[in-house]
Nucleic acid binder design. Sequence first.
DNA 1: AACAAGTGCAACCGCCTGGGG
DNA 2: GCCCCAGGCGGTTGCACTTGT
Length: 301
Amino acid sequence: MGRSPCCAKEGLNRGAWTAMEDRILTEYIQTHGEGKWRNLPKKAGLKRCGKSCRLRWLNYLRPDIKRGNITRDEEELIIRLHKLLGNRWSLIAGRLPGRTDNEIKNYWNTTIGKKVQNQPSSTLNSEANNTRHKPLNHQTQQNNTKVVRTKASRCTKVFIPQHSQIDDESCNPPGQQFSVPSVNHDYGQVNNDDPAMTMMGTGTDHQPADLSTFLNLDIDDENSNSCEFMVDFKMDESFLSEFLNVDFSQLYSSTSTANGGDSSAHAISTTCGDDDHHKLHGLDFQPSTAPIVDSELDWLI
DNA sequence: AACAAGTGCAACCGCCTGGGG
DNA sequence: GCCCCAGGCGGTTGCACTTGT
């Protein structure tokens, strides 16, 4: 059953770290740098598992760790990010300098989780109806929220469904562009039904925006019936940075430029050809017509 | 004061992914 | 393409501490 432990347990210290161990680990990493965690304990003279060393360093000893209470701003950001990303604590932590994923996870499961639980679902996702030692799980998430996927899964493809709402003339004032920088990381998956995505998109409850709208896609008419394609692009915190700083009400306007205005303002030209090159405000990416076989993408259909 | 219940958080566990051979 | 390994991640647990009775 399961995989064997990452390292032999015999003779290794477990539990809380002592001040001496902390000092040894800190000095070793300051001298030799991070990495090679498996060999680190032996070289540093620590009776610890490499994973344990890594965790201790990343969550506690790292010099740039910010200790102390989570501020109100940080909490609001965590809630926003969690709404978008789900339990992807490392990504959320990436947006909170000095905070660790473990800290944010703990904070959510204790403080915010309780707040959420005590609030009506209209103001906060009811996903956090967790109790002590019953943290959020897939089932809970799926039942109570639509946007988040709790299990981390890297994905570099996004399936753009054909029912993009980009041709709505009523949402066409020339507006700001939403730029997506070059990226290379995980990203949260989105769901058309999610209020957050609705907010990003057409701005009406009856016209939920999908990802293509959100990304300011321009899909050629001739391909409008076959524009179910895989956009193969990469995304990381840089994207999130833009993503989270976007004024979504204005984004609504920006989607409109795709069909009418200056062609230079088009975010993406999409023609589904093999050699076609596509740009999203400078971000090169290549679509693929590969069919969607990954059930992981069901959320987008 | 003593005990139980609740809380917060560090640490551990197992799984997944990507890279290298 | 397959296998192995290291690193990374989210979920879970253990325990010290705090609060309530």
